[in-house]
Design a protein around this nucleic acid. Sequence first.
DNA 1: CTAGTGATTCCCT
DNA 2: GGGAATCACTAGC
Length: 213
Amino acid sequence: MIAAPDRTPLPREFFDRPVLDVAPDLLGRILVRTTPDGLIALRLTEVEAYDGPNDPGSHAYRGRTARNDVMFGPPGHVYVYFTYGMWHCMNLVCGPEGRASAVLLRAGEITEGVELARKRRLSARYDKELAKGPARLATALGVDRALDGTDACAPEGSPLTLLTGIPVRPDQVRNGPRTGVAGDGGVHPWRFWIADDPTVSPYRAHTPRRRRT
DNA sequence: CTAGTGATTCCCT
DNA sequence: GGGAATCACTAGC
């Protein structure tokens, strides 16, 4: 007998902690995305922490800009950025307001609304690939810059809600270097995932691009 | 399975 | 100007 996930929204205090405490605690939580098309629930299986002021890998490292403004705001809100000319990725803002720390949502398991997620992710061969990677996750949920700044501590039925779900036991949490982060930022072992979960994205070290001729 | 590369646009320097 | 918290596709083992 498996316990049903707790559908209570996480309170804002959950996010108002150091980002390295929040990040592993997000594993096993349920992110609900509601649109006119329907509802998708995603169980988080992989995340990465970014600690604004001290972290060369963070978008906030070089200070506040129009793009990263939400990172400097109150915890519990979503920071969405556009990258590589094609993709969106989503983060949850953590820590005290103004510290600009956040957790990148890297992968998850679609637990409700698989049919809707497949419509948004036509290239996915298997259900476990629907949200295997940060841009795939955002695509499956229908998340783009229009949701930048959305409050995730909102009742179910709002555009985004993070539910209590079922926290992962500490002995099931793994951590290692962050993926795709350039320069010195990659050295921090601030990527967290659930051991042996099939929806966790494959590790890729950052590969510098050759300039176009 | 791993490694290499083109796609495509926003943002900061 | 040029890099970017990536993906999809291909070749080869």
